[in-house]
Design a protein around this nucleic acid. Structure first.
Length: 213
DNA sequence: AACCTGGTCAACCGCAGTGTA
DNA sequence: CTACACTGCGGTTGACCAGGT
């Protein structure tokens, strides 16, 4: 339970790695394996702490690391897994061969997070940001996004709040025309074909309340 | 050309979990 | 049971770069 001893004591090097250090580290690990990270730097002739070496190896030098841009499929996988796992970057990385948790975390924070925000989705909950929802002119788009998110969750066999579902269903129902639940939940393509939607203030408040839960 | 701003990402920091003496 | 060592993880930082003014 104790804290790891501070690794920067006694003049150990910090900051960006040189190609010489990279060579020493990867050469040593290829010959001996990582073994004990604490003793590795000394044995490999590096003036770094073990923690720094481990990070450099796992995030950069490991031979099975896939570099370059994330594919569309990878991006979709990250979004889907994040909606289930949250900020469990290592768990997400475990399902994306060749990608590191650090890389995924960076990609999330710099690309995906912003994209979701632009779409009016909360990057934490993957549900519509209700600040946008209330009084927004693009209410229908946001509700569609919510449906999409719910649909994804359902496909992943997650537990859904039935009350939330019924609220969303009612929000998307044309005035005085109840529509079958299946159509709402699985007929995303039909959303744009619905003639007219009205959302009452009470419905919005209800939804807000449920989404905050 | 110089400066500013925002995006990107490698690396660091600190905490928590686990193993062991 | 306790203390310590080691490892792993998530959040944050800061250097670097490109594009805009």
């Amino acid at each position: 339970m104790g804290r790891a001893p501070c690794c920067q004591k006694n003049g150990l090097k910090k900051g960006p790695w040189t190609s010489d250090e990279d060579y020493k580290l990867s050469h040593y690990i290829e010959e001996h394996g990582p073994g004990n990270w604490r003793t590795l730097p000394k044995l490999a002739g590096l003036e770094r702490c073990g923690k720094s070496c481990r990070l450099r190896w796992t995030n950069y030098l490991r031979p099975d690391i896939k570099r370059g841009r994330f594919s569309f499929e990878e991006e979709e996988t990250i979004i889907r897994l994040h909606s289930v796992l949250g900020n469990k970057w290592s768990a997400i990385a475990a399902r994306l061969p060749g990608r590191t948790d650090n890389e995924i975390k960076n990609y999330w924070n710099t690309h995906i997070r912003k994209r979701l925000l632009r779409m009016g989705l909360d990057p934490v909950t993957h549900t519509p940001k209700l600040d946008h929802l209330i009084g927004s002119s693009s209410q229908l788009n946001i509700l569609s996004n919510l449906l999409l998110a719910l649909n994804q969750q359902q496909q992943q066999q997650q537990l859904l709040n039935p009350q939330l579902l019924s609220i969303v269903a009612s929000l998307l129902t044309p005035l005085g025309q109840p529509i079958p639940q299946n159509q709402v939940l699985f007929g995303n393509n039909n959303i744009s074909e619905q003639p007219q939607y009205q959302t009452s203030w009470q419905q919005q408040q209800q939804l807000k309340l449920h989404c905050q839960m």
